[in-house]
Design a protein around this nucleic acid. Structure first.
Lengths: 104, 104
DNA sequence: CACAAAGTACGACGATCGTCGTATCATTTG
DNA sequence: CAAATGATACGACGATCGTCGTACTTTGTG
């Protein structure tokens, strides 16, 4: 918990919706939601540069969507599903559910 | 239907989330959702300028969230709830529902 | 026709966004 | 210690955003 994570009650809807409005970030969130296990940042979005990936992860973390911590040389990420579901019930499910459509 | 309205199947999730990420526009959508009757644009968001209001309504319309048509000198707006609900089930409810929180 | 009302078009402005490359840091491993 | 790995910091760039004011169009009303 050494990074900037907003408390559950401080999670802002505008920030969450903005974070989710980017397809790249939505893809990351979808992958995190699919695998319950935490994963290192580097295992996502292979098409983009490292700095861009860092940027996207920071946006997600500061919006309160993910939690991050260091583990060796890697940085692990986990979806804050309980917090998001508690604060905005149904939001994550509807956004991720529509991913099942041909929604790229 | 003389304006640019995306078809239901063409409604893009990124555009919808981006449109909803602005508090001003979310407020408009919330008011439209509250009163089932169409309302002229001028009856919203009294604090902002006319041009900004026009801009917000266009963003909402081009994202597929609202439908607009002229009626006399006014332009009426109605929420495309059925289309949004069909395309992204639960999304609108979760976004508007959280409005009930102290989410400004 | 003249006037008022409701929106739009068109820039403009500062701010933020998504992306990148390069340099740097922290950690593990040889 | 030295090298490699995984991620960050720091600009930088073009693009988009939210906001505004002013000028303009469209429509209805006297």
């Amino acid at each position: 918990m050494t990074f900037e994570h907003p408390d559950r009650d401080a999670i802002d809807l505008s920030a969450v919706l903005h974070a989710l409005s980017d397809p790249q970030r939505r893809e990351i969130v979808a992958e995190l939601a699919a695998s319950a296990e935490p994963r290192p940042c580097g295992s996502f979005a292979p098409g983009i540069s490292k700095s861009t990936r860092t940027h996207h992860f920071r946006v997600l973390r500061e919006a309160g969507l993910i939690e991050q911590w260091k583990e060796g040389t890697s940085k692990m990420s986990r979806l804050r599903r309980a917090d998001i579901d508690a604060r905005f019930p149904g939001l994550l499910d509807s956004v991720l559910g529509s991913k099942a459509l041909a929604q790229v």
